[in-house]
Computed example of a mutant assay.
Amino acid sequence: MPLLRITALNSHTQLLVWKITETFEALFSSVALKDVSLARLDGMKSESHQKGFLGVRRLLMEAGYTDFDLYYDEFGKPHLKDGRHISISHSNDFSVIVLSEENIGADLEILKEKTLKLAPRFMDISHLHHLSEEDRLRKATVVWGIKESVFKIKNEVGISFKDHIFEDDFNLEDRQCGVSLQFNNTTERFDIVFDFIEDYVFVCAFEKK
């Protein structure tokens, strides 16, 4: 299945989702890659990771870009040559990109029990009280995605998910919440939107103005 959906997250932010059902060969033959991307692809040990990487390049094409329009800074953050903001994520059978006029961070996570087991290491577990086991897993995965998304925006050495990024409590049906980053004697706020795509959680963070 090629492009699964395009969703407007707000008036100037777009989410594109690719469900990967193609073979590696089919994906590879459908995109043009610059030399540095070919080398990066060749260095990936997992075919799933390779296909996620190629899925992102197919999404770029859907948005009117190519791999040649994308570059990474010294911290590994992706950028587009035209200055539009981009965030990238892929997990198992899905690749996503978010394009925006705002600085954004996006994350895609598959629902897995390990995330819930690790929850005390990265979140306030009181936010999981009084929920069913299924919803505890879903909420813990959203919180992990929130922290990943904020980190993708800030990308500063020393930021701890547990000690510096604090999500406001929220209900799963809200599909949005707020979060604070308290780091280096400064507090910054971010707006969060999230959604569920089959057995995956999608999260996007926006810098609060």
Rank of each mutant, 00 (worst) to 15 (best):
P2S: 07
L3M: 14
L3Y: 00
L4W: 00
I6H: 00
I6W: 04
A8D: 11
L9G: 02
L9I: 14
H12Y: 09
H12M: 07
T13V: 09
L15W: 11
V17P: 00
K19Y: 04
I20H: 04
E22R: 00
E22D: 15
E22C: 02
F28W: 02
S29A: 08
S29Q: 05
S29R: 13
S30P: 02
V31G: 01
V36A: 09
V36L: 08
V36H: 05
L38D: 00
L38T: 01
R40G: 03
L41F: 09
D42S: 08
G43I: 02
M44I: 07
S46C: 00
H49C: 04
H49F: 01
G52N: 08
F53Q: 05
F53E: 01
L54C: 10
R57Q: 14
R58A: 07
R58E: 07
E62T: 09
E62S: 14
Y65H: 02
T66R: 15
L70H: 07
Y72W: 10
D73C: 10
E74G: 11
F75G: 01
F75E: 13
F75P: 00
G76D: 08
P78H: 12
H79F: 14
D82H: 13
D82Y: 11
G83H: 09
H85R: 10
S91N: 14
D93E: 14
V96F: 01
V96D: 03
V96W: 05
E101I: 02
G105Y: 15
A106P: 03
L108A: 10
L108V: 13
L108F: 07
E109N: 14
E109Q: 15
E113N: 12
T115K: 10
T115F: 04
T115Y: 08
L118R: 09
A119G: 09
A119E: 06
A119K: 11
R121I: 00
F122K: 10
M123A: 03
D124V: 12
S126C: 05
H129R: 10
H130F: 14
S132L: 11
E133T: 11
D135H: 14
D135M: 08
D135W: 04
D135S: 12
L137T: 08
K139G: 10
K139V: 13
K139C: 05
T141N: 13
T141R: 12
W144N: 06
W144A: 05
W144P: 10
G145H: 01
E148M: 11
S149P: 10
S149H: 10
K152D: 11
K154F: 15
N155M: 11
N155P: 06
N155K: 15
N155V: 07
S160F: 06
F161E: 05
K162V: 04
K162H: 13
H164K: 06
D169N: 15
N171A: 15
R175F: 12
R175H: 15
Q176A: 13
G178V: 02
L181F: 11
F183S: 14
N184D: 11
R189Q: 12
I192W: 03
V193M: 06
D195S: 12
F196N: 07
Y200C: 03
Y200Q: 03
V201L: 03
C204L: 12
A205H: 06
F206V: 03
F206Q: 01
E207G: 06
E207A: 08
